[in-house]
């Protein structure tokens, strides 16, 4: 049940898409709702950062700061650049990463009890906000930040964007890094939804990946393949590609959350339950309460 082969992967895909289709209306409503909330939160976050700056320093110095930042971007040192990206990107994209994490909450309800509701996503969003945001930050720092930093470093060293072979090498490294790290952390959000801390969920995800590499990576790669197919259809089949695009967002993405959650639940089954002997008879007690 825990190991993988081609049939298992196909079965995982089939079941996850069936559940995603069955709950498509809940997912569409939930995703629209949660994106609105995430957008509002992003505006609030931006306001919380920008308004005090304007009040303290005024609008003019802030405009000058961003203009000079643009002018001096190429001479910024690695540490400065890292801090700046983290400072700007995490608060702004945090709400969206939490929204993605909250979809795993819906997936958990579906996988464990065969049903979910659109409003359920808001409960997960609210209850797990900090943990999911933490998970999003980890994902961002581990998977995306090194690629962004490497691209910026390459741009800074060469003075221009790379072309030809160096570019191909960097792109290939970026793809491999992205697939490997996101695959290794693919059990992160299901773990957080299961009540683990961010660190606990990271450890759990890495442990499951090491222990059941074929199942975790097989599942992850199969969803990447699905995303590539849907994306290609979206681009190639204009104007019908709109349908493929909608299916990518409202069917393939939920199916991925369902599939990964399902694999998580299967892999975290407590196989080492303590050995007990069942009652031979009807299990009636003879001795009364004290």
């Amino acid at each position: 049940m825990k190991n993988s082969n081609f049939e298992t992967l196909l079965e995982d895909l089939r079941i996850s898409f069936r559940f995603a289709w069955k709950n498509v209306i809940s997912y569409v409503l939930a995703m629209i709702g949660v994106l609105i909330v995430a957008g509002i939160l992003m505006v609030i976050m931006a306001a919380v950062i920008i308004v005090p700056v304007i009040l303290v320093w005024g609008l003019e110095p802030m405009i000058q700061f961003f203009v000079s930042l643009g002018q001096n971007w190429s001479v910024l040192q690695g540490a400065e650049m890292f801090s700046l990206i983290v400072f700007l990107a995490i608060p702004l994209f945090g709400p969206f990463l939490v929204a993605l994490g909250a979809l795993f909450g819906m997936a958990r309800e579906i996988v464990e009890s065969d049903g979910t509701t659109a409003e359920g996503v808001f409960v997960w969003y609210r209850k797990k906000f900090l943990s999911l945001a933490g998970g999003g930050v980890v994902l961002f720092l581990v998977s995306l930040m090194p690629i962004a930093l490497m691209s910026i470093w390459a741009f800074t060293v060469t003075g221009s964007w790379m072309l030809g072979l160096p570019m191909a090498a960097v792109a290939a490294f970026a793809v491999v890094w992205l697939v490997m790290t996101t695959g290794m952390l693919s059990m992160l959000f299901p773990g957080i939804i299961d009540g683990l801390s961010v660190l606990g969920a990271v450890k759990q995800s890495v442990r499951l990946t090491r222990q059941y590499f074929d199942r975790v990576f097989g599942t992850w790669l199969s969803y990447i393949a699905v995303f590539i197919i849907f994306s290609a259809l979206t681009v190639v089949m204009i104007p019908l590609g709109v349908i493929a695009g909608l299916a990518l967002v409202f069917l393939a993405l939920p199916a991925m959350t369902i599939g990964l959650t399902r694999v998580y639940l299967i892999l975290t089954d407590n196989a080492s339950a303590a050995e007990t002997t069942e009652d031979e008879g009807p299990g009636v007690r003879i001795v009364g309460g004290v």
Partner: peptide
């Protein structure tokens, strides 16, 4: 103790609780 059937485990536990009291 852990291997005992649940009803037996419950009964012996009660006997011992009563005795301890």
């Amino acid at each position: 103790y852990n291997r005992l059937p649940p009803s037996v485990r419950g009964d012996v536990s009660r006997i011992m609780r009563r005795f301890a009291l």
